[in-house]
């Protein structure tokens, strides 16, 4: 398990936006067991996440986003990410307990790449997390480095 401090200012593969320490601990456990090579950063709320992204040399390969966050909520954060040119195209997967239809629709409307329900049962939870990391980190072709894709888009 990597220390958070050591990762500060370093580019990471995964940004976890999660306010619940228990959920975070469970997710980190799954990550450590199944994807030990993965680098990640945890933000407790939307503001922390934005602060981290503003300083990070390059955006992460994937952002895992909880919706119910203190201060800046998950959906507001998503909106801010999509407005920011650097993170406009970064894959964001909403990983939440909410099954509310409005949340699903709003999330997709704001540009979420995926919406995944966070299961209560731990076996199920870890298998879902494992599968989504497999897909988005292993299988999915990541976005080229920032300068490249900006040039391409312009």
């Amino acid at each position: 398990m990597m220390r958070l401090e050591s990762l500060w200012m370093r580019a990471v593969t995964l940004l976890l936006v999660e306010d619940d320490v228990d959920d975070e601990a469970l997710m980190v456990r799954v990550l450590a067991r199944r994807q030990p090579a993965l680098t990640y950063h945890v933000a407790r709320n939307g503001r922390d996440a934005l602060a981290y992204l503003a300083q990070a040399p390059s955006p992460p390969q994937l952002i895992l986003l909880d919706l119910q966050l203190p201060r800046l909520g998950g959906l507001e954060l998503l909106q801010a990410l999509r407005l920011e040119p650097a993170t406009r195209l970064t894959p964001v997967v909403v990983f939440t307990s909410s099954t509310d239809r409005t949340d699903v629709v709003t999330a997709y409307d704001l540009g979420a790449n995926s919406y995944i329900f966070k299961p209560v049962e731990f076996q199920h939870f870890s298998s879902v997390l494992e599968q989504l990391l497999n897909y988005w980190v292993e299988l999915n072709q990541p976005l080229p480095p920032r300068t490249d894709h900006l040039r391409y888009l312009s």
Partner: peptide
């Protein structure tokens, strides 16, 4: 619903 699920998930998870 959301807030009850999180502790449940923690109980189940731990």
């Amino acid at each position: 619903a959301h807030d009850m699920r999180s502790p449940l998930r923690a109980i189940n998870g731990f």
